[in-house]
């Protein structure tokens, strides 16, 4: 009996570790390349250990034409997306969480339905429209489309954040002298803040990672992924790898920050 339990345990850890390696090894390898000398990419064979640390590749990538501007654009777009989707999405999420009103389920379904619309169907006509109204090739154009993509998600997350804050608390505040608005500001908002911040950061990641719309809606004001994908075929391998790492790193940091909320964030949006 005891022997069997021990074997089960060993199998469990072996499986768990194998899957962990599967997830982590590629990240390690791209990091390894990004911090090797440029020419290491072409060497054969090449070490699997970080024996020749060098900033050359990353420096090359960062100083390449357009990289810095594209990074700045990416940040601007992601920040715009974050603010827009929170400003529009949080009130809607609050309404879904706190009020019973006719058509509430229909609204929820409608929000879920928006997922079905592919990026292509939004960005191609919008590109045409944006050209017409002069918004094309601006961070705003990309941010608007990214917001359309992130908004349903933010609405569902904020709704679940507010659902998890008992209604009683706001009502108690109202019996203690608060107006509905001040009850919200003093009670629900502070309690929702961590969840909302996580949602915001997550929106940032969504926008930071998006490439299709960004590539279609920009020409000179590229975001980082748009820049990388459009110059991909003409650029040397080490540029691509450095770019890959450069895009992964911030997303990983953000993931680390919001890790406590991660499962709620995703579990909810898929319900």
């Amino acid at each position: 009996m005891k022997g069997r339990a021990w074997i089960g345990s060993a199998l469990w850890y072996m499986g768990a570790i194998a899957l962990a390696l599967w997830v982590l090894a590629p990240i390690y390898l791209i990091g390894l390349l990004a911090f090797s000398p440029r020419m290491a990419v072409y060497r054969w064979p090449r070490p699997l250990l970080p024996l020749e640390f060098s900033l050359e590749t990353m420096r090359f990538f960062v100083s390449a034409t357009g990289t810095l501007a594209a990074t700045r654009n990416s940040v601007v777009v992601a920040l715009l997306t974050m603010m827009l989707s929170l400003a529009l999405g949080a009130p809607a999420g609050y309404a879904l969480a706190r009020f019973l009103f006719p058509g509430r389920e229909a609204v929820r379904m409608g929000i879920l339905m928006t997922r079905m619309f592919p990026m292509a169907i939004l960005s191609i006509p919008l590109a045409v429209t944006f050209i017409r109204i002069g918004l094309y090739d601006t961070p705003w154009a990309v941010a608007l489309v990214h917001t359309a993509m992130a908004l349903p998600f933010v609405i569902l997350i904020t709704a679940s954040v507010f659902v998890s804050i008992p209604r009683d608390l706001e009502e108690a505040a109202m019996t203690l002298g608060c107006s509905p608005l001040s009850a919200f500001l003093r009670i629900s908002l502070p309690l929702a803040l961590p969840g909302l911040a996580a949602a915001a950061l997550f929106t940032f990641v969504i926008s930071w990672n998006e490439v299709f719309a960004a590539a279609i809606l920009t020409l000179r004001q590229r975001t980082l992924p748009a820049l990388v994908i459009t110059v991909l075929n003409e650029s040397p391998l080490y540029f691509r790898f450095a770019g890959g790492f450069f895009m992964v790193a911030p997303a990983l940091v953000i993931l680390l920050i919001i890790r406590r909320f991660l499962f709620n964030l995703w579990g909810i949006t898929s319900r």
């Binding site: 990240i27 990672n209 998006e210 890959g244 992964v248």
Partner: peptide
């Protein structure tokens, strides 16, 4: 962890 990684970045990672 891969949740935060974009399609493009994943493609480049596996290109390596």
């Amino acid at each position: 962890i891969p949740l935060a990684i974009s399609e493009l970045a994943a493609g480049l990672v596996w290109l390596a």
